[in-house]
Amino acid sequence: MNKLKYLGKRLLMSVPVVWLGASMTWFIIFMGPVDPASRLLSEGQTRNPAAYEAAQIQLGLNQPPLQHYLDWMSNLAVFDLGQTWLLYQGSNVNALILDFLPRTLWLGFWSVLIAVFVGVPLGFYAGMRSNTASDYVASMGGIVWRAMPNFWLAIMLLTVLGSAYTLAAGDFFALNFDWQTIGPNLDSISGSPDLSRLDTVDGFLAATKKVLPAAVVLGSASMGNEMRIGRTAVLEVRNEDYIDLAKAKGVSKRALVWKHILRNALVPLVPIITSEAFLLIGGSVLVETVFGINGIGNLFYQAAIQGDLPLVGTLMYVFILMIVGINLIQDLLYTLIDPRVGLEGS
């Protein structure tokens, strides 16, 4: 009962957050120093008063601001997102998002997976063997990895994967490594993954392989962080009395590590994992740009530099929803993992 109440409270708190965020976005876009209408039109057209007025009317800017605000917010709430102006001119924004978003989600999914399933075990490993050589190597690696700018890492990775290598040992054997041909064939190492055939094994593998380098890059920073925190969590839990008592009871080493230590070490990791998810959403812009993936981050960037400000605002709303959604998932996970939650409710 307590847990449900806690979750309900969090859900309720999300509503004003979304509302505030959307309002701030509206304010920046439509009340900012730049005139969205003139931004949309090309140089020649701005001088044309008829075209300008038409743009204004279409954007709803001829109305008083409050009216415009209410219209805009209500449109967002029912997902009536209108049409685009400059990018893919005239397309339905909803359709555009539905086309682009899955690619970003696919990328994000794999990033989180890699970050969690590589970073956390590495961190646990380092924590269980703390202060040994393997610990230092792993920790140092995590720290440096975390400090690398991900767009730079993306460039480097693309370069490495773009060439073919041969590992040879004299005449005995030669191992050819060409990223493009290992496993499922790719027509090119960059570009958007084809998500239309995910239900087939081949399609799934191909789509995964396409997005894997980008996911590694995007997840790399989080990986370093999760490693570090996982390590700390394990160290702290190891020193607790209840672990000693379990050992004194005669619990097997295996059960001690898996049932007692790791389960408790997971608790502080949950907020970190989900907070990394926010960063993934932001960082996807850079990675998508480098890898040429037409995801929603790339769309946002293109809209921004080309001046399609209304689209920028709409997309920002979508992002806000995603982040708040992730927050709620985090709260849900928290209640599942830690039985103490719901009583104090942070």
């Binding site: 209840y242 008592l245 004194a248 009871k249 005669g250 408790n264 830690d338």
Partner: peptide, 28 residues
Amino acid sequence: RGDIAIVFQDPSNSLNPVYTVGNQIKEA
């Protein structure tokens, strides 16, 4: 193991917080 048992000073830290009391006794 089991022939000698120990009780620590801080009971709030002596029991694993994520499992029930029963679970931990039944483990032993």
